[in-house]
């Protein structure tokens, strides 16, 4: 099955190259091309393509602002003519970074890399083997880390961070990394205690120290709040 994608790119020549490469590869089906973040988000409200080819510098909002507003976790390939965004790209866990102009060979490498990755499928049965069937009522879960199953009290978790195909669990004393997806964790930890505040972060609400602007502080860790998650966060917090 072809990977569905959209292209968010304000330079027509660059977008045309991408469309041509997608068609030539036979691997990617382009569902739309948008010249700015606003129009792309309007489309993404209704449709959820597997992949977004995302330019960074565009009139109005930039590509990272689109990432902050996403309410699901598609694969992301950044396309930019600047290399300065490499650190931001890493922070946002983008799947690849193509420096414009790029060749078909480089495009194909990026797409094949994405298609080789396991596709996160919603639902506990299809999720990667990260936990041992925890009941929703249990106050702990088991995670596979360091070659063993570790019992982790839910209340000890400060936050979880997506690391592509892995999830990092941060507790006051230790950090664990397990093979799983944030989507799977979101489902397993559904309830009042946890909330997804960014495409890469789920936090334990009771561990929040303070919130400044678009950043939540949890025991010295600064966690960004994505635009698309602000409303739900505000609704879930007891703000006087």
């Amino acid at each position: 099955m072809k990977t569905t994608c959209i292209i968010v790119e304000d330079i027509q020549i660059a977008a045309d190259f991408l469309k041509k490469f997608c068609e030539k590869s036979g691997l990617v089906d382009v569902k739309g091309h948008f010249l700015n973040v606003h129009d792309a988000l309007a489309f993404l409200d209704q449709y959820k393509p597997d992949l977004i080819f995302l330019d960074v510098e565009m009139p109005g909002a930039n590509g990272f602002q689109l990432l902050d507003s996403l309410t699901y976790s598609p694969k992301i390939i950044l396309t930019t003519s600047k290399t300065d965004y490499a650190f931001d790209a890493f922070q946002y866990h983008v799947d690849d970074y193509l420096k414009k102009p790029f060749t078909y060979k480089r495009f194909l490498e990026a797409v094949q890399k994405i298609q080789d990755q396991p596709i996160p499928i919603p639902g506990p049965a299809a999720a990667p083997a990260a936990t041992t069937q925890p009941s929703i009522d249990m106050d702990f879960l088991f995670i596979k880390a360091d070659d063993k199953l570790i019992r982790l009290k839910k209340d000890d978790i400060l936050f979880m961070e997506s690391m592509r195909d892995y999830v990092k669990f941060v507790t006051p004393g230790k950090t664990y990394i397990t093979y799983s997806t944030l989507k799977s964790m979101e489902e397993k930890l559904a309830g009042p205690a946890f909330i997804k505040v960014h495409r890469s972060y789920i936090i334990n609400i009771s561990k929040i120290d303070d919130i400044r602007g678009n950043t939540i502080y949890v025991q010295g860790n600064a966690i960004p709040v994505g635009k698309g998650h602000k409303e739900e966060l505000a609704a879930r917090l007891n703000i006087l």
């Binding site: 304000d10 330079i11 020549i13 660059a14 510098e57 003519s81 414009k100 102009p101």
Partner: peptide, 24 residues
């Protein structure tokens, strides 16, 4: 800076890699 950035990308697609660097 933003407008030069756009032109820089265009120059790249027609093979003006040195001009692309100058724009950068």
């Amino acid at each position: 800076g933003t407008n030069i950035h756009t032109c820089k990308t265009l120059f790249g697609y027609v093979g003006f890699t040195d001009l692309q660097e100058l724009c950068q």
